[in-house]
Amino acid sequence: MKVRAVFYGGLRQDTGVREELVEVAQDQLSVEELVAVLTMRFPALGSRLRAVAFVVNDTIVGPGYILADGDEAGLLPPVSGG
């Protein structure tokens, strides 16, 4: 299955990319497992991921949320609008 991780705000600078395609052999992937993959690929994310929220289909989801094939997971760092 494939999921697309999209980086927002300063995370784009940390990773150097806007988004990352993650392909795994298993047929489901939790947000927690996605975090593990992204941490290996982008060590610079490091401890910043602790303060990151994940959004799937316009809903913020927890680490146990199961992603479906083709899902897009947005990584939202602490916000600073206004």
Partner: peptide, 19 residues
């Protein structure tokens, strides 16, 4: 998110509030 651009040419995303 806001990214400040400074007169000296540097820029940075401001620290924020975790969702």
């Amino acid at each position: 998110w806001k990214e400040e651009h400074y007169l000296d040419g540097q820029s940075r995303f401001l620290d924020g509030i975790p969702l």
